[in-house]
Design a protein around this nucleic acid. Structure first.
Length: 489
RNA sequence: GGGGCCGUAGCUCAAUUGGUUAGAGUACCAGACUGUCGAUCUGGAUGUUGCGGGUUCGAGUCCCGUCGGCCUCGCCA
């Protein structure tokens, strides 16, 4: 470029960091001067990519006759679920709005109202502690359809993902996505969002080690626990320290120890082999498909601890040993969730998904009798071991909805207080309906192969839920508090 | 609420076992040179070591507290 004249439109101070793709600057500083950080070409690419994903979602759903309907941000606090963000009402002193955790009830109401294909790319709020994958406000691609079953929703979403991959990512993705049951996911991967990019399945050896003399295992089994483990293929050369590190790792998740066996030519070796008869050792090796040079790792504890420890250990080893192909996008559906689980602390049942999820019709007769065996008509979309979103076919009769509320410890009176509008709406011929919500921030993060959703959010919050640029949240004028009838403690 | 890592020049980092005047690269400023494009050369300026206390003859380093950032458990229907 050759310039004849130069006019300075505005002067710039020396920026606090270099505005370049590779700048390796502390996140703290980037967030404080986000207007400079967002100038970096890489950030512009990320936000543009996000925009294109959202545009593709809109085009795709519009073509299928979905209608984008806005739902309120100032709404009603609901029990269950995450902690609400509250907004005091000046006009109704002493009362509060809540920011929506999701537009769940509004979209169901829209189904009753005859808008049988709804979608919205919508902000949701949850006042819980933050993580690299979790912000207090986040965006969902939310949709709902009437007169549908699970397969209809799944097909629409598979078509959507295929379109996004074709138009935005520039890669092919094979549909339909494989489906795995909740039961199988928990058994083989220890979690409900399994990373299927690598094998290393968890196996139950409780029945085999019952014939051992190892007290830790026996006591665990006799008190209702279990012994499960994984085969860390090729890790037979791990040192004592390596294994100690793994033990400490699973300790974070409540495991009190990590039993190990190295697989050698002669069979299994370990400091604890003396407690195991030869045939038990042999059965263990066979059951775990262990070959020379492998390392077997077992956790004995109650189911929850075993699941979490081994699920995390599996991922840890997968990354550590680089056996995960990080260039691929592995989608799957997790289906056949239980409707409830039991909260030991509160001594009551809780909805695994949410209280509006329909039980499987076959299980209606055992709803009250064996609630933990009732299957939910729910499905989660999982990408590379991350839950991208979830949905369900909803309850559409007031009778069933009340039965579920009662099981959750919500009596008819408080149900009407909290969800009266839904129960009323369901009385007027509500159609069968269902839907799903996908996390947009997570989706964009994964598609860009990043690991922090703050990299795809223009103005994210810190771990303490503050904005370093605006300094929100902040103190307010005493007059504002007075108008709201609020006095600080 | 619990556990862990981190905080040193504008930025990214170093500083031996607690030891003299806290350094480097880069950025910045000035000059030289130059058909520039990560220029180059010469020179220069730059620190309340986040903050407060303590231990010590002596603290960037050790201890306590506090503020902030990050990771994580709990939490997140």
């Amino acid at each position: 470029m050759y310039a004849d004249t130069v006019e300075i439109l505005n002067r710039s101070e020396t920026p606090p960091f270099e505005i370049a793709d590779e700048n390796n600057v502390a996140l703290e500083l980037r967030l404080k001067h986000r207007y400079l950080d967002l100038r970096r070409p890489v950030m512009q690419k990320r936000l543009t990519f996000r925009h294109k994903i959202c545009q593709t979602v809109r085009e795709y759903l519009d073509r299928l006759n979905f209608v984008d309907v806005e739902t309120p941000v100032l709404t009603k606090s609901t029990p269950e679920g995450a902690r609400d963000y509250l907004v005091p009402s000046r006009i109704n002193l002493g009362k509060f709005y809540a920011l929506p955790q999701s537009p769940q009830l509004f979209k169901q109401i829209l189904m009753v109202a005859g808008y049988d294909r709804y979608f919205q790319i919508v902000r949701c709020f949850r006042d819980e502690d933050l993580r690299a994958q979790r912000q207090p406000e986040f965006t969902q691609m939310d949709m709902e359809m009437s007169f549908v079953d699970e397969n209809d929703i799944i097909q629409v979403i598979e078509g959507l993902m295929a379109t996004i991959f074709e138009k935005v990512v520039g890669k092919k993705v094979t549909i339909p996505f494989p489906r795995i049951t909740y039961k199988e996911a928990m058994a083989s991967y220890g979690c409900d969002a399994p990373d299927l990019r690598f094998d290393m399945k968890i196996k139950d050896v409780s029945d085999i080690v019952r014939a051992s003399n190892f007290k830790v295992f026996l006591d665990t089994i006799n008190t209702g626990g279990q012994v499960r483990g994984i085969n860390a293929v090729g890790c037979g050369n791990y040192s004592r320290k390596d294994i100690d590190d793994l033990t400490a790792f699973v300790g974070q998740f409540g495991a009190k120890g990590l039993a190990w066996f190295k697989v050698e030519e002669s069979g299994l070796t370990s400091s604890i082999t003396k407690f195991f008869p030869a045939d038990v050792l042999e059965k263990l090796q066979q059951h775990m498909h262990a070959k020379k040079g492998d390392l077997l790792l077992f956790v004995a504890d109650k189911t929850r601890v075993v699941n979490q420890s081994l699920a995390q250990l599996r991922l840890h080893l997968g990354h550590k040993n680089k056996i995960i192909d990080t260039t691929i996008f592995n989608f799957s559906w997790v289906v056949d969730f239980p409707l409830f689980d039991y909260n030991e602390d509160l001594k009551r049942y809780e909805a695994l998904h949410h209280p509006f999820t329909s039980p499987h019709p076959d299980d209606l007769p055992i709803l009250e009798g064996k609630p933990l065996e009732v299957k939910a008509r729910a499905y989660d979309l999982v990408l590379n071991g991350v839950e991208l979103g979830g949905g369900s076919i909803r309850i559409h009769t007031p009778e069933t909805q009340k039965r579920v509320f009662r099981l959750l410890g919500i009596d008819d009176e408080s149900a009407y207080l909290k969800f009266g509008f839904l129960l009323d709406a369901l009385k007027y011929g509500a159609p069968p309906h269902g839907g799903i919500a996908l996390g947009v921030d997570r989706m964009v993060t994964l598609l860009l192969q990043l690991d922090d959703i703050r990299e795809v959010i223009a103005f994210p919050k810190t771990q303490k839920a503050t904005c370093l640029m605006t300094n929100a949240p902040s103190e307010v004028d005493p007059q504002q508090l007075k108008e709201l009838g609020i006095r600080l403690a």
